[in-house]
Design a protein around this nucleic acid. Sequence first.
DNA 1: GCTAACACTTGATCCAAATCAAGTAATTAT
DNA 2: ATAATTACTTGATTTGGATCAAGTGTTAGC
Lengths: 200, 200
Amino acid sequence: MDLTDILRLPEPLRNNITTQNLAAGETLFTQEDEATNFYLVTLGRIKLVRYINEDRVSTFEIVRASQSLAEIALFEDIYTCTAIAEVDSEVIVYPKELLLSILRSYPDVAIDFMEMLVKKIQSLKFRLELRDIRIAHERVLHYLRHLVNFPEETTVVLDRPLKDIANDLGFTPETISRALIKLETDAAIARQENIIILQK
Amino acid sequence: MDLTDILRLPEPLRNNITTQNLAAGETLFTQEDEATNFYLVTLGRIKLVRYINEDRVSTFEIVRASQSLAEIALFEDIYTCTAIAEVDSEVIVYPKELLLSILRSYPDVAIDFMEMLVKKIQSLKFRLELRDIRIAHERVLHYLRHLVNFPEETTVVLDRPLKDIANDLGFTPETISRALIKLETDAAIARQENIIILQK
DNA sequence: GCTAACACTTGATCCAAATCAAGTAATTAT
DNA sequence: ATAATTACTTGATTTGGATCAAGTGTTAGC
């Protein structure tokens, strides 16, 4: 989902993009706002959420440095979710029309952009697949194994609070905690702080 | 998610695509197969599934007429899921390299393609949002309301067996059945066969 | 037309995650 | 340094979906 290629923009257009800084907890845009920009995160972490009703929030996605958000802006008039900085963050702002013209004029950038979109689709599909695993410790194990990029690797460093991971996986923090303990007693993993070692 | 624009291909290239017919239950491609083609469904319904382990199957997506599948083929070497025809179906086969060259040469087609990808992302995000609603009748109602394209509409025609919808939503058929009955007694919906009327 | 398969419904029971509650440890703020 | 907040853990209880089981009605096949 790396989008650094988007940064390699044609010179004349690169001058028209700006950066924006966000404090932890600050909102970048809100659901139903007019969609005017596409963003690339350069620092920090942006959380995309949707308010389903008064007391229910669904977290769609955690967008990290070098990842993009608000692709929808290119083809829709309003944002369909709310973007909030989880920690102090920085984003590059690409005005919608500008980006569309770039994508029309530079096939290489367009192909990179498509690849990023396809990777995002894969990632969402995986998260959906996870939800079909009902038993907590099985879901967590499947998730941990997926975090390992290469099959020969066995170590996963959790860089977010467990409660956030719990939320991603559709569990409560209590359930994640118990699931990890079960995986540990079953000798499927070993834990040291926020480092998980998968036992093959 | 309409992709009919992809059909409006530049004349010289259109000759290089072929169609393929599938009987109900037939497999189009299998997880781990070499990814050589991108497909557009012209008739019927293709189900994308992933085999998580021996006895667990996760349905990713139902691809219908005028929708596409296997975008991943463009950027990866192997398919990450298995495609099976739910009913007798027909697909257009786009060889990977051919489609990539089209996307490079024809910005309009590329933009249409991106729009399709973004719509797919939206759809997956919605399905993920659904999974965050735990209570069955609430999840079902949210789903039904989403099937209504225009806010003033109130009628939803379910064109697939309830058990398939149940599977999409991450429930058993029993649970969906009970959820619909609850929504009916709560006067949130009315039912006539496979037609659902949403009470606003 | 009869049988078989399938879709849906209904009821009883089971099970696992949510919830509620409380405590500990670690980090942040003052 | 101390207080306050936050992250995580642990235990007891609740809750609601899964499962098992059986029945009805409809569709498809022979």
